[in-house]
């Protein structure tokens, strides 16, 4: 069973944090198709958050096609397409994070060339096998 962590003090609404985490778990295979999610009440108590917030998370995940809920049985990760949708959603999260990083770099006066250098440095750090970035490191 996946475990989720929310930060109530973050400015990001709790339901958005939780939606992202469920999608991430599905995309990474921590939650597999057909797997049952905890009940709304159980997850609310596990995370000590409002049950209506969890209910909203489940409704939005259902609308996004990541999970399906059948009355009386509970909520499950969808068999067809749920993983693909969750993967695309997680790509959106990554894209937003990269966008934020670039904006931050620009906001503190780093020009485009230097931003590219920083980005390549980060790539080399996190994708150690990448030849392209090794060459770039040599050029510097």
């Amino acid at each position: 069973m996946a475990s989720f962590n929310i930060d109530p003090h973050s400015g990001v609404p709790i339901y958005l944090q939780l939606i992202e985490q469920v999608k991430r778990s599905v995309a990474l295979g921590v939650l597999v198709p057909g797997e049952q999610l905890p009940t709304v009440k159980q997850l609310a108590l596990d995370l000590t958050i409002n049950a209506n917030t969890v209910g909203r998370v489940y409704r939005e995940l259902e609308r996004d096609g990541v999970i399906e809920t059948s009355p009386g049985r509970g909520s499950f990760v969808r068999d067809n397409g749920g993983v693909g949708r969750a993967t695309r959603a997680v790509e959106d999260v990554a894209s937003a994070a990269i966008d934020g990083a670039v904006r931050e770099a620009k906001s503190i006066g780093i020009d485009a060339d230097n931003a590219v250098k920083l980005f390549r440095k980060a790539l080399a750090r996190w994708y150690p096998g990448l030849n392209d970035t090794n060459e770039l490191e040599d050029q510097r």
């Binding site: 709304v40 108590l45 049950a51």
Partner: peptide, 23 residues
């Protein structure tokens, strides 16, 4: 949270904003 999930209405005051933010 448990009582509210069971249908009860809860009104509470607190100086601990983090608690309010959660619940």
């Amino acid at each position: 949270i448990g009582e509210s999930a069971g249908g009860a209405t809860v009104v509470f005051s607190s100086h601990q904003i983090g608690q309010v933010e959660r619940a």
